[in-house]
Design a protein around this nucleic acid. Structure first.
Lengths: 340, 340
DNA sequence: TTGAAAGCGCTAACAA
DNA sequence: TTGTTAGCGCTTTCAA
């Protein structure tokens, strides 16, 4: 910086003002140009550590992914969400620190990221329950946005309406004439999204006047394998459903394998509807009917919300719910009456 | 820090020594314990900016993803690679800055990350060609590791042996009796991996004494859609192949749709072998025979290599080649002689 | 063993 | 419109 100042024939302060575009400072256009040119020529970049130390801002946010390594491997959203976040924060000079935090692995923590001022805010992805550390930080006023549904509603968040979307999926099945509809949850019911999607399933059934049958519900675990196992169990029950709502596409793909292995064909013998619309959903046979999740927008909104919080603005909404969309492909069809 | 010192009844220097585990300093175990406890009680975390400024190290590396947004959305490796990198660097206190850099978007750059000392090293993922900025940085001695194959071989890198693996894939087809084998590249031939896999294909053909037929080769573009289009073109040619080696699973999935739409069944009418072994490969019908890429190891090795470079060590090898594996599933079978 | 003090490169309040 | 200067919180050399 000293060098830039010398080369431009001004003081370091002036350089600082120009490079920062500090308002309320009158510096001749000619001087400004000279400084920019000198900086360019010297390939100068402001030292990040010094800048953070002096300003108390790191211009960095942490993206904390709360997933097991296993789930990470089949995570189809990561790219979209990261892309969305980058779209939101890069243009304003913010960077993204990528952190994974296995919910089951003890010890690691994100509060240190904040206490050490390494990041200005936290963007938490993935389901969290009873996260006292998170709650404390939130209480202290640390900028936090959750991509998903938080367990306490004072935390800012962006998500889709899981209940309504799940209901929409089941309504689709209902409209096709199905009355015996099974359900596989995306993950354990400890996860709020799992609970919400189950609620949507029940609401749809309820509205249609169909009794809820616990026997028709199985639990997934975010993986192909869990879908396979859950479906196997469902297929061994006495009352065979004609359709199944599997609230996670990856789990659905696993379940489909079990259905095929049982000699059933889709959609003739069994209609299948998923949730998420992972990239492959349109490229399996038959194409998987599912609920589309706007991953990029999810990331973008969350990023923008966090930025607002960091800048001391009060976001318009506490919780943003993005639109989903029913994508009808080949895995669902009108019920076939086998006894005809 | 001042507070910690006071609480423990020592000077700031002593606190610094203890917290850093500075060698060659004799401090009584009792004092050390007292300091740790005080730090704990005060919930103290060393200020990151100050630490970086004083030490000149940011303990951060940048993961630079050179992908179009479109590709990012269907990227099946991201999770695995990130996971691998995190495994390598987190245990030694390093963090990951996630940066995307669309190869087609001008302007953005990574040299600033280095010049501003924001990161200690660069981990570049994805194919790069004629990247003068990268070459310059490398010349200057900046720690850089590439996950993939660099265009100049002085750059450290970790990848799989694309030529040998592609050859292995085609050999599998050859062993099944196929002689008319088509090929779809993963991406444009400007990408080294695309070229290498094509080379492997040619080598296999060559060894088997089969002439290379340009008509049997089409170009993919990393996406489902490109596979679909490329396959359509191939299917319209006069000489219909009995097998096809598609050197990218996502592209292969797209191609499979074209094959089915043409009324051909897999593997009876057409054997298909992919490359990468994306998570869904085992959950489509029939299961996709492919070459398994060790994504987590790729990330881990690259991370370790970069760490070594940052610490001034000379890595044992300039270029690390990880093992791939042929995974035989249902999409390939012995050739069926239609004219019998 | 522990303490004092000089930077690290920048910002920003103040003075000129 | 530009320059001076006091920190930001830590490391690290040197002295005690």
């Amino acid at each position: 910086m000293q060098q830039v100042a010398e080369r431009a024939g001004v003081s370091r302060t002036t350089v600082s003002f120009v490079l920062n575009n500090t308002p309320n400072v009158n510096i001749s256009a000619e001087t400004r140009a000279r400084i920019w040119q000198a900086a360019q020529e010297l390939n100068y970049a402001r030292d990040f550590a010094a800048l953070s130390l002096a300003t108390g801002r790191s211009h960095t946010i942490a993206f904390v992914l709360r997933q097991h390594a296993d789930e990470l491997l089949v995570d189809a959203f990561l790219g979209g969400v990261l892309n969305g976040i980058a779209n939101a924060i890069n243009p304003v000079g913010y960077h993204l620190l990528f952190c994974t935090l296995d919910p089951n692995a003890p010890g690691s923590s994100y509060s240190e990221l904040i206490r050490s001022q390494r990041v200005d805010g936290l963007l938490i992805s993935g389901p969290v329950i009873n996260e006292t550390e998170l709650h404390e930080l939130h209480e202290e006023g640390v900028p936090i946005v959750m991509q998903g549904t938080p367990d306490i509603d004072t935390i800012y968040s962006v998500d889709v309406d899981n209940v309504a979307s799940a209901k929409q999926a089941v309504d689709h099945l209902l409209e096709l004439g199905h009355t015996c509809i099974a359900h596989i949850t995306p993950g354990p019911l400890g996860y709020i999204a799992s609970r919400d999607r189950l609620t949507g399933y029940r609401q749809a059934l309820d509205t249609a006047g169909i009794d809820y049958d616990e026997e028709l519900v199985a639990e997934g675990n975010f993986t192909y394998a869990s879908g396979y196992t859950a479906m196997k169990r469902l297929l061994n029950k006495s009352n065979l459903p004609t359709a199944v709502f599997i609230a996670n596409d990856v789990v659905a793909l696993g379940a489909i394998r079990a259905i095929r292995e049982a000699g059933l064909s889709i959609p003739t013998d069994m209609s299948v509807i998923g949730f998420d619309d992972v990239p492959t959903a349109g490229y399996v046979y038959p194409g998987l009917t599912t609920i589309h999740l706007p991953t990029v927008s999810l990331g973008k909104c969350a990023g923008e919300m966090l930025l607002a919080l960091i800048n001391g603005q009060e976001p318009a909404q506490q919780r943003i719910l993005l639109e989903t969309q029913l994508v009808i492909r080949g895995s669902t069809s009108e019920i076939t009456y086998l006894d005809l």
